[in-house]
Design a protein around this nucleic acid. Structure first.
Lengths: 129, 129
DNA sequence: TAAGTGTACTATTATTGTTAGTACAGTTTG
DNA sequence: CAAACTGTACTAACAATAATAGTACACTTA
């Protein structure tokens, strides 16, 4: 389920946060789906449960999951009304990256196409059935 | 010239890298323009010259500046032929952020407009004279 | 009660960020 | 050559952080 780079300078818990965010964003982990428990995942990855918990706690702060004592941790369904702050911060990050891309000489049209493609693959997967 | 947040968890040298990248990308620091020397900037910001050097070294690795012993550090003119690797990595980062933005419910049209605006403000500043 | 969940601690070690100081190599100006 | 500037490369020390290890507690489910 995960591939961690123990030699990386990037902390393990940050790698975990990134991976899990990716799985959630790509809808591989569905809303309200239960994540592996801190102890289970720690055993699978042969790392310490505290490190898992740190990642889960961070994901909870960022609003991607929620945890219930005695039950487990679950994917948090997005709430567009509550998530305006996060939308703003993501937009700011996007601005910086877009400016960098333009600075490097990537055509604006390429970036626009990138968005269109990603947007299409997002909703497009539901055409079958 | 700079505003550093000493209380931030983000290392000072990383803040410096970000600020300088921003100045370069926004064309405030022009190609081949000389940056302040490590000692001068360290004195201005009342931080250690080693920290400045760490930032400059990182910027050199990333291709934004070049340094010449005895002369100084300078903004590196971009070379679209050489920078294909960096373009690819920026595109990958952009993909992740765009997916997150779409996941949060930001309309694709908003993102496209963002690109168009940034692209216009980039070249648009040269119409007057 | 037992076994599973998340959570909260303490302690310890390794790594990293930052400062401080010294030194060396190259450039420029006199 | 000398002086004053540049970048660069070290060592040493301290503070903060990442990660492990271990223990304990609260809650849920069977």
């Amino acid at each position: 389920m995960f591939e961690l780079d123990m030699r990386s300078r990037k902390p393990i818990y940050e790698q975990l946060v990134d991976k899990l965010k990716e799985l959630i964003i790509n809808d591989i982990l569905k809303p309200d789906e239960q994540l592996p428990s801190v102890r289970t995942l720690a055993q699978e990855l042969t790392i310490n449960p505290n490190t898992i918990q740190k990642a889960y706690r961070e994901l909870e702060i960022q609003g991607f999951i929620y945890s219930v004592k005695g039950k487990g941790s679950f994917v948090n369904p997005i709430d567009m009304k509550k998530d305006t702050e996060k939308m703003d911060s993501v937009k700011k990050e996007l601005e910086k990256l877009i400016l960098e891309a333009l600075y490097l000489g990537i055509p604006a049209d390429d970036l626009i196409k990138l968005i269109k493609d990603l947007n299409a693959s997002k909703g497009g997967g539901e055409s079958n059935d």
